[in-house]
Design a protein around this nucleic acid. Sequence first.
DNA 1: AATGAATGAGCCTTCATTCAT
DNA 2: TATGAATGAAGGCTCATTCAT
Lengths: 198, 198, 198, 198
Amino acid sequence: MALEEGKKHRSKSERTKLSIFNAAVELLGETDFEDITIRDIVRRANVSVGTFYNYYATKMEVFYETYQVADQYFNETVAPLLDQPTAYERVLCFFEHYAHYSSELTNMKMTRLLYNPDNPWFNRDPDGGMVGVLIQVLQDGLDSGEFSGHGDSARELADYLMICVRGLIYNWCTEKGGYDLYAATQKLVERLMAALRP
Amino acid sequence: MALEEGKKHRSKSERTKLSIFNAAVELLGETDFEDITIRDIVRRANVSVGTFYNYYATKMEVFYETYQVADQYFNETVAPLLDQPTAYERVLCFFEHYAHYSSELTNMKMTRLLYNPDNPWFNRDPDGGMVGVLIQVLQDGLDSGEFSGHGDSARELADYLMICVRGLIYNWCTEKGGYDLYAATQKLVERLMAALRP
Amino acid sequence: MALEEGKKHRSKSERTKLSIFNAAVELLGETDFEDITIRDIVRRANVSVGTFYNYYATKMEVFYETYQVADQYFNETVAPLLDQPTAYERVLCFFEHYAHYSSELTNMKMTRLLYNPDNPWFNRDPDGGMVGVLIQVLQDGLDSGEFSGHGDSARELADYLMICVRGLIYNWCTEKGGYDLYAATQKLVERLMAALRP
Amino acid sequence: MALEEGKKHRSKSERTKLSIFNAAVELLGETDFEDITIRDIVRRANVSVGTFYNYYATKMEVFYETYQVADQYFNETVAPLLDQPTAYERVLCFFEHYAHYSSELTNMKMTRLLYNPDNPWFNRDPDGGMVGVLIQVLQDGLDSGEFSGHGDSARELADYLMICVRGLIYNWCTEKGGYDLYAATQKLVERLMAALRP
DNA sequence: AATGAATGAGCCTTCATTCAT
DNA sequence: TATGAATGAAGGCTCATTCAT
């Protein structure tokens, strides 16, 4: 993923850290998390093991960092794109990006890792991250009467959608990406939205 | 899990194998799969490492076996219980048992493990296992006009439901079983069934 | 090798022991000694591990027994065949059988094993075994003036020949039996005999 | 073995590797190859197991390395010493060094190990290694008419000599080095050379 | 005599992490 | 900052041997 590409004039230190991070992300796209060794990462990043530990205190840290990056991506890049006229369309668009993001960054092990309660980013306020973006869209739909939560809040509806879509991504992972995640996501979300009809 | 409890007069050999299997299942409920060692299992089963390998050729095998057990359970125990008048109720009942089963046997690691393509049981005919039971119920509903697949087959609808419910179980695992899985499953399935209304 | 074939009416016990011995010998012809497990042997002999230990106290014993068998074979079967007119021909004939015997029974690991000083058969009187047969032939040649030991005794000449021929068998083993051991033995012995010309 | 002793100013890394190699060689002189454990090696080398694997990918590798060292030794050290007037003397000298080398480095297990077809050095061009040195000497003798191959090439004659001398070393090993290998080698080679008389 | 389940010491190998340079 | 050699706990698995049946 072309994360960070727009920025320039990084210090050497920043570039080293980024090369480590990118190497980790790349490997995550190819290999199971627990099969990735520090050696794999530093070999790809062309640095030494010692250097790795100059930037990350443990092996987990570099992976946790991808979580932050995801939130950033949704807040800075995706949120501004959600300008479709109906909330329904905006939900679809949100998950289109979610599918895109997932198919490039996530794999089963990674997802599991990020949801590991040891992850210090795990219990952060959901409103601030990518789910926050979705909640906002759903709230808009509830407010305008376009959706009915049948008693549930926007946050609860977001959980409902996220849980199911993650189930799909999970399934897609187990099938080794053997089908089109975009199309499958779109079809699934359309179905799920049936429950939000007023 | 009370699996196997009804049977009697097992040979010593059968009892040993069962104690290993049960120890593995128990540990799976407490610990990550990859953090469970052979030594952990045999310590709990009160046998030696050598004994473990008398019954299972590799560490994986004992876990794969839980998969078989699940299919058996659904075919032999759950299927006969699905005698409610409407297909809708039977679907709910199926997932009630699925939630029950999952909350006792499954955890995140286990699910992931079982979906590992290396699992020889992974590519078995789905109609024969637990999903087969669900497919049958959905087919009945489609045939009677109680459901509409909107162009999808019973198998595809089963996938839709299973994917989402697994997403829920997965979420439940990440939250360390912090909420009532039965209630959550029931609520989710009711929502999902909105998409099957004719 | 058709060892023991001529005898009849063995007791069940004798037949069991023989089947174990034969299984061990067969495996020795296919696999390295240290890669043969008790399980391999008993599986081929169609008996249980317990039965193995009823007849042999340790894994080694069954292999050591082949040594005895070799001596027997040379004393009982080969010796009577050495009736050629010249000692030279008798030496060639002896090694012809030696090559035959080796190519069917011996492999590198086995040879090494049998020469292991822990082998209780190792330090037995050489005159009694297969080398004894060779020594006799050489003594005859020395006595008749057909050979000259250039100061060495028949025993020393036998060692000279045995050492070199074993070197050949050893080489043949490392090349996985890739050439004709009979022909190579014959050629080698002819060469070695040049040193025994009066 | 005094290999490598002349060199100085080795890096720490080189010294560590050498200490592992030397420990392995030492142990080989005392114990069967298959009875030598990694732990034995590293204990003697005063390094950790992990360090062993920093230098050798498998247990075999360290032993295979002795093979390379042997070739080097013969090419770099022995070959220049073969300056005697007759080819016959040069052959004797070659095997004198061979006996020296073997009695210090080789033992039965080692020889067997090195001849293991899994050894990547096994099928290397023989002309390049120690046998190459011998072949050259024999070729000289054939060219000058000092020897007669009776139809065989220098390579074949070298095989003849090597096979027999290895048989001797093998015998010497089985007798736990209980006699003077130099003297025995000299006597044997002199005998073997009888077959090369024109 | 025959069985085979049970044993457990011990093997090879991996890899996150440390630290002297 | 950067390096990479060194560490060592820990893991999966093997197999000769024992012994109750």
